[in-house]
């Protein structure tokens, strides 16, 4: 077990953004996190990564876990000059051969070293994935990595994620809107529902929502 969240809840003001989430990722597993916009997928991922504190429940993480993270959005300040190879080594130094193979695995090795601001949206997304791979993660958390990647590319990306999982024997938490792929390739699918826990008195749980959540969690 790499990471396991039990009865996890995050509250902002009076509103529970996520609540009663059960989620665990094992080595070599591909776990999908799905749900409509605003369901709390990104929030859930950040909680798993320890980027925000949870207000309920607990998260167990294997100590000294090497984590690769591809955020949903990354806004770059244009005054910061960054090339492809500089961005990829932003959070650590790596040998050149390893950088090349990470770039090659996402199909960016023939790109040269242009400023990242000139990349297309899909290329930038692949670059972020290559950056995460470079750390040889035990756990890979990908927040909608397929956004802006073309149709053919999305299939390639999924194959790539499968390859990575096999090669690195890492666990993957994949946030996606592709229900079909989730059902056919995921080891587990965790579904979140927007506003599921809104406007209920603190401490009370709705049995219907709970049943729906459990059913979704065990899909």
């Amino acid at each position: 077990m790499l990471v396991k969240a039990t009865d996890m809840g995050v509250r902002r003001g009076e509103r529970w953004i996520i609540r009663h989430v059960e989620l665990s990722v094992d080595r070599g597993q591909l776990i999908y996190l799905i749900g409509a916009n605003g369901a709390g997928k990104s929030t859930c991922a950040k909680a798993i990564l320890g980027l925000l504190d949870i207000d309920e429940g607990s998260i167990d993480r294997t100590p000294a876990l090497e984590v690769g993270y591809v955020p949903q959005r990354l806004a770059l300040n244009p005054t910061l000059p960054l090339t492809v190879r500089r961005l990829i080594t932003l959070t650590g130094r790596f040998p050149g051969t390893r950088i090349e193979s990470a770039l090659a695995s996402v199909g960016l090795h023939r790109l040269g070293d242009p400023p990242v601001t000139t990349l297309s949206g899909g290329e930038f997304q692949r670059l972020l994935l290559a950056r995460a791979l470079l750390h040889r993660p035990d756990l890979l958390v990908l927040d909608e990595p397929a956004q802006g990647v073309d149709m053919a590319g999305a299939g390639v990306l999924l194959d790539l994620i499968q390859d990575i999982r096999r090669d690195l024997q890492c666990g993957v938490l994949l946030i996606s809107h592709d229900l079909q792929a989730a059902m056919s390739t995921g080891d587990d699918v965790v579904a979140l529902v927007p506003h599921e826990h809104d406007e209920r008195p603190f401490g009370l749980d709705d049995p219907y929502a709970g049943a729906a959540r459990r059913a979704a969690g065990q899909a």
């Binding site: 980027l51 690769g68 993270y69 955020p71 770059l76 300040n77 960054l82 932003l90 959070t91 650590g92």
Partner: peptide, 19 residues
């Protein structure tokens, strides 16, 4: 330099990398 630069691009990425 490295942690500060990484945090300038994305504090989240810097934290996840343990910087």
């Amino acid at each position: 330099w490295r942690p500060l630069l990484a945090a300038t691009v994305s504090p989240d990425l810097a934290v996840v990398a343990g910087l």
